[in-house]
Amino acid sequence: MFDAQRTNSRTAVLPAWLRTLVIGRKPKRTLLRIGVLVAATLLVRQFVLLPVRVYGPSMLPTYQQDGLNFINRLPYYFHEPRRGDVVAIRTSDTTIMYMKRIVGLPGETVAFHDGRLFINGQMLSEPYVKYPCNWDYDPVTLGSNQFFVVGDNRSMPQIYHEFGRTDRNRIVGRIFLWKNLFATSPSPR
């Protein structure tokens, strides 16, 4: 009798309240909830909001050169990218992407003269460009499925700044937050 009691007390490893806290009153339902949560997270990540780490100064001063942000895929299911949108452009996949602003739309002619952007021969007002720029770039006409993208940091030497034409199918989505989260570099504003 004494041994059976000792055996029985050893099998109750977790107190009942702790077991309820960890796995719930109904473990099957808890497991189902976990499954639904994981599936929902994966779906959101795949089709709605993609978290990204930001590196590089090309979007200063609008965005700091590091930190966390999200790519919102939803808008471009309903309409095409618009001028002024800050977008993510994929390379061979979405592991590494460029973060740039759309300044030229399909069919338009884009040029830089003395640091100013011209669309179809008309100068475009760019209030987000805060640093001086001296870029010169011959006119280029975009194809029917091409957009012209460039960073906001025009004080970078032109040869080191990645910018130019990109195909529509490379645009993954629009940057979600207006400011990077957890950025360690100081905000330039």
Partner: peptide
């Protein structure tokens, strides 16, 4: 090299 953001020539 593939120019993801091409300038004067296509990718």
């Amino acid at each position: 090299t593939v120019k993801t953001l091409s300038l004067s020539r296509p990718a």
